[in-house]
Design a binder for these strands. Sequence first.
DNA 1: GGTAACTGGGTTTTT
DNA 2: CCCAGTTACC
Length: 702
Amino acid sequence: MPAARDQSAMSEGLARFAAMTALAGVLDGLNTDQLSAATHQGGPLLILAGAGTGKTGTLVARAAWLRDQEGIKPSRILLLTFTRRAADDMLARAQPPRGQDGSTRAAERLVGGTFHAVAHRIIRAHAESFALPPEFSVIDTADVADIMDTLREEHGLIGTGRRAPRAATCADIYTRCVSTGARLPDVVTAGYPWCVPFTEQLAGLFTGFVTFKRQHGLVDFDDLLLLWRAALADPAAGAALRALFDAVLVDEYQDVNAVQADIVRLLRPHGDGLTCVGDDAQAIYAFRGADPEHLRALSAAYADLAVIRLSRNYRSRHEVLLLANEIRPQSSGLELMLSAERGQGQRPMLIRCHDEGAQAREICVRVLAEYEAGVRFQDQAVLVRTSHHSDLLEVELTARGIPYVKYGGLRFTEAAHVKDFLAAARLVANPADHLAWFRLIRLHEGIGPVLAQRVIDALRITQPGPFERWPEAALTLPQRARPGLAATIGRLAAAAALASSGSTSTADRATAILDALRDPLQARYADAGVRMADLERLADAAAASPSLHDALVELALDPPVSASDLAGRPRLDDDFLVLSTVHSAKGLEWPVIHLPQLADGAVPSDMALSTPAGLEEEQRLFYVAVTRARDRLYLYAPLRMHHHRMASDDRHGYAQLTRFLTAGALAQCEVTQAGPPRPALTPSAPLAAAVDRALHSLWGTA
DNA sequence: GGTAACTGGGTTTTT
DNA sequence: CCCAGTTACC
């Protein structure tokens, strides 16, 4: 993170001290505000860090300061983030120089990771105290939806005649309740009004879901946080866990949900040693229970809270920031205006396009113009509100041969064959994982939900037992389904035996699982070859972990975006335009940013139009998008949009320019029209009818 | 009884 | 494009 030199602000003594120690590197180059944040002494601290203001560098410097100046052992400093990328980045920069043997002793290493990863580490180390089996499985959102799907019928949420909430919606409602601590009826009424008639069924479903998880040794993302919080709130266990750390640093505090806010509070009940970094104007995760109110409430929670603002922006040109400041939602007491350290540039350009097709063509034209001027594709990004906003653009990019990569949207671990592999690996690690068995058994030809359930019953998997018994269970099946499944189960038993022997490497276990899957995958997928190749890479990646369990947890908490992620970056020199959702672009920057679909209904999303809270979130999303740009910002607004349905025969509604571009904001933009409008031909006769008449005359029927 | 193959309606954002 | 509901097939 670039940070300006600001020697004048450094006291002479401080400068001398810094120069003498390892701190010199991290403190050197901090500006006044960054320095006072990094060296803050005493009570709790909130660093209100605007976009591009050097927040990461400041947090790293603070960790170093706590270590070198306050004398806190690094292993007693906890750094909490929301993405693993952020955690890895900061931990790497915060480590002291390595010793001569190249190693860093455990005591010298900061403790850090995402909330979920740290929670998992604690729970895993004390599984028995949490009354969990030692090999519990961590399940992701898709798994939760799958379980809800299997339980939906018995709770009256299927075949109701009315549109009942789907499995994924049920899972959304569940996690919303848990992560905000709100009651089910309130959540349904406020966020899912069409599901109100099913409130009672949902309550039953959720009760069943919790029971199911406990019975099968499953822990979901919410559970990780709930269990950590429960341990911290426990009089005996809480004291022990609190005593592990003297300092807690939390990144992106505006994105905490109620449970995470509680965890932070329980870790530092008196606020000493607590540093929170965040910006409530960049809170964009309300849909998963986050609420910037938790950041705003910090000053009420801690009477001695110090607030330091970072407003000197090292990322964007002056003109970009003029627009950013104009659209930034200010909250009272936490106002912040960004000032440019990188000097003047160009005004953001708003291009009004005839329709979405014209918008796609216009983006390509501008991307290519930048490219011709020397800006590589990878230094440009198109940021969209929802991933389908780039559909038309992708067609146009492909047609013109512009290479691109897309972030956000479907993840690698959501591909069917990857889920198959993960299921196999999970049931080998945790044979009570009913869900994994269910998926794997149904993978075989001729076996649906009913037969699969019968096999599971025959396996009696909830009791730990000899794996050799498994193949016998397959013999109770109807003839047509028997041979393939029996073979797979035999191989899985072998893999499970291997795993429990404890003497083999993770790599061998992964290979054994892959062997069990080869035949069924071959039979199921036409492109089995490609899919097997994917899985080999997955197995290779898993082999780097100390255990299969750890590998699975890592994959759940930090799923690779694509298969190529697993193999590192094979083609570094290739140049791709970046397409990303705004959510996935958080924390990133590009020299050139293109923002399409700036029309009401798209930005802000029509899903959010009905509530003030939804609209506020959309505005923050827009703010985040704008502040990704370093040098140039292109805004695109289509004048007509397909999905704006009006009358049945008029599928092209007139689109309103996004309400976020107010008069004040527009004044900061250069406004142009996309190309010359298409001239109207205004033929004197209906042309199709004329052609038809001509055709009919050919066979004499006219 | 149970599974696969077909067809029509709806689609945010993700640790 | 994914999912639910239907029909056709074993």
